[in-house]
Design a protein around this nucleic acid. Sequence first.
DNA 1: TCTGGGGTCCTAGGACCC
DNA 2: TCTGGGGTCCTAGGACCC
Length: 420
Amino acid sequence: MNSKVFALIDCNAFYVSCERVFNPKLNNRPVVALSNNDGCIIARSKEAKALGIKMGVPLFKVKEIIKKEKVIVFSSNYTLYADMSRRVMNIISEFSPSIEIYSIDEAFIDLTGVRLNYENYAKSLRETILKYTGIPVSVGIGSTKTLAKVANHIAKDDEELEGVCSLIECKDIDSILAKTKVFEIWGVGRQLSQKLNRQGICNAKLLKYCDDRWIRKMMSVNGLKTVTELRGVSCLPIQEVSVTRKSCCTTRTFGRPLIDLKDVEQAMATFARRATERIRGEGLVTSSISAFLSTSPFDRGSRYYSNSSSITLGYPTCDTICIINTALSIVRKIFKGGYKYKKGGVLLSGFYNKGEEPLSLFSSDQKEFPNLMLTIDNINQRYGSDTIQMASECHSTKWKQKRRNCTQSYTTQVSKLLLV
DNA sequence: TCTGGGGTCCTAGGACCC
DNA sequence: TCTGGGGTCCTAGGACCC
């Protein structure tokens, strides 16, 4: 048998589940978790879904339901979620040597050649994760990653399956695909599904039997891969080692609109510093710096403005001072007075591993402070990421985001440990 | 009052080369 | 009268994912 077996492990309502681990009173209650700036709902418990609260909806649009039904609302606590994710992933790695961590709450594993019953294996994985971390997961199993995704949806929806669904022994995958809307297929988003629907292709079974050349034209090369995977032919392998990233950005919606250049500069200096600290932690240097600013696209009362620009450096660097200065020079160029800025960001790209960057013939005036950077990183790692800032940030709080109801860092700070 | 953040990949079109 | 063909590289914009 040369057919492959993939499993997708996906945490159920991950952010809500993390909060429940440390506060069991939340069990069986409607709970939601919010995006940054307390803007949108990005995780919902089963009970909250049942109230009709949709994924991604802005908080203010469901205020009524939340009040009436006493829905519990959390600002997102990424420090906690990242640590809980690490624990879940560690357990999954023990069940398969071949794992791809796909997102904070999802991982693919390769089960090809496992001699045990796949469903039993998945059930024991699920029980172990629940027992050791308190996080409930669903497992979908299929001969391709795309089919494992389909199986995972079924495992989540059908309570009788106890969180595990395998399509490996399934004799009639087509009838399952017929019940899967094209929008639910991994890799088919809003635009593509509308386009397919207009052509009369509304479910995965119809898509599976379309002509290859037609699919290539409609959905481009990745779309053809998706459809090939629906047919049971694996084209998307497990990506175990994370390849070097191609870009790194820090962007935020400001807690309130900024009007003055000085306030915008302070926020953007912080974004530049955080992005630089991240690439430095990964041993990278950047050769291209971009910055963007925009007003709110939802504010009908004001004129919309958005602009960005980038600068290519003559010499790649990971020096915070140099990168902040470059970012601020872009900010001064794209900033226009008289607008209410609501969002900004700094994007770094054109990376090299430190020590492998090309040397420049003309960069003798380049000033860098590697020892200073190392010291700052050590301090910030130990005492919290914003402990040492650059003077250009001015310890600014004007742009700071809303975070009305955020739980503490139960697992990453000794002083915040839960007392029992 | 109030609408997230961080990524990847593909394509079309323009500039440029000989 | 009549104005090629083949290629690379870069960028902006749009699609997708969680």
